[in-house]
Computed example of a mutant assay.
Amino acid sequence: MDRIKLRRAIARTRLAPVAAFPKRLRAVARYDAKVLSTSARWLVQSREHHNYTYDLTPLSRNHLAWLVSVVCDIPVKQVRAYLDEIEADDNLRQHLQQAIAGAERRGLADKQIRYARRIGWYAIVRASRPKHIVETGVDKGLGSVVLAAALLRNAAEGHPGRVTSLDINPEAGYLAKVAPWSEVVDLVIGDSLASIAALDRPVDLFLHDSDHSTVHERREFTAVEPKLAPGAILLTDNVTVTNVLAEHAERTGRKFLAYRETPVNHWYPGDGIGVAW
């Protein structure tokens, strides 16, 4: 009996799991070896301890383009142009590199600028042209600067807007404190729920990226609901962990989509973007 017939014969017996074990072990070992290698390289080369940054795989980037295309109802070619636009923005990249190099917290930030899923935020802002964005959770301010860069491009085309960035940490947002990006960013330090309640103008785009507990995320979407402008877009950075925005979308009669990013050469599996519109 040849090997192929023998394998097929064994596959029909109780010995099948035992016979398949070496092949399964090799597959797992190859995967684990790759993860361990990537992790070891990151531990040596990176400074980040949270809010990891990385590039997206080409496939993941293309899926993100299609998500934005569907949500904003524009051609995917236009979305890809927006993604290329931010990645080719040398002034923004240079500012971020200089701001990180001169920051007191530079020991916890990488010098290389990588936007990950935030290029999707940028494209959504470019496509939807919001007058007022509210972002909860700022950290260094990378997301705030990305949103501001999109708003500045919109303003140059006759569609001005501002972003209100909320964070409880008084040291947050140092990347967003340099002109021209700072000119469209209102950094508010304080509890996000209290800050949302105090908003005095309609919100066209809301992004949850603060405390990622289910309870707090739900409270933020509940708090911002009466503040939303007609046709507002809701985003969450917590979609890979909770179903909060999907439930909120169903409860309020909105559509919902979720995207999970795939990082290039990183041990972290990636976050995502949840969208309700």
Results as ranks from 00 to 15, higher is better:
residue 167 D to F: 02
residue 173 G to P: 03
residue 172 A to N: 04
residue 236 T to S: 14
residue 233 I to F: 09
residue 212 H to I: 10
residue 233 I to A: 09
residue 166 L to P: 04
residue 164 T to N: 05
residue 173 G to V: 04
residue 235 L to S: 13
residue 220 E to R: 11
residue 194 A to G: 05
residue 215 V to N: 12
residue 175 L to V: 01
residue 199 L to C: 05
residue 240 T to A: 14
residue 186 D to A: 11
residue 211 D to P: 07
residue 187 L to P: 00
residue 236 T to Y: 07
residue 240 T to M: 13
residue 191 D to C: 06
residue 210 S to R: 08
residue 226 P to N: 09
residue 174 Y to S: 05
residue 204 D to K: 08
residue 169 N to Q: 11
residue 225 E to G: 06
residue 201 R to L: 07
residue 234 L to M: 02
residue 219 R to V: 04
residue 189 I to S: 06
residue 190 G to L: 05
residue 169 N to T: 11
residue 240 T to H: 11
residue 176 A to V: 07
residue 190 G to W: 01
residue 219 R to D: 15
residue 197 A to S: 14
residue 211 D to V: 09
residue 220 E to F: 12
residue 205 L to C: 05
residue 174 Y to L: 10
residue 177 K to S: 13
residue 191 D to T: 04
residue 171 E to V: 13
residue 181 W to H: 12
residue 173 G to I: 01
residue 220 E to N: 13
residue 216 H to R: 15
residue 236 T to G: 10
residue 212 H to E: 09
residue 239 V to M: 08
residue 194 A to F: 00
residue 222 T to V: 15
residue 187 L to A: 02
residue 195 S to R: 06
residue 212 H to P: 09
residue 219 R to N: 15
residue 188 V to P: 06
residue 185 V to E: 00
residue 198 A to S: 14
residue 184 V to C: 13
residue 197 A to V: 07
residue 175 L to N: 03
residue 226 P to A: 09
residue 238 N to C: 12
residue 233 I to D: 04
residue 178 V to G: 03
residue 169 N to K: 06
residue 219 R to I: 04
residue 215 V to A: 14
residue 221 F to S: 08
residue 187 L to D: 00
residue 229 A to N: 08
residue 178 V to R: 11
residue 201 R to F: 01
residue 216 H to C: 12
residue 227 K to E: 02
residue 211 D to W: 08
residue 221 F to V: 12
residue 201 R to N: 07
residue 213 S to G: 14
residue 206 F to P: 11
residue 164 T to S: 04
residue 182 S to P: 03
residue 177 K to C: 07
residue 191 D to S: 11
residue 187 L to K: 00
residue 204 D to E: 15
residue 203 V to A: 08
residue 206 F to A: 10
residue 214 T to Q: 15
residue 208 H to R: 11
residue 190 G to P: 08
residue 177 K to Y: 00
residue 204 D to I: 09
residue 183 E to Y: 00
residue 215 V to E: 15
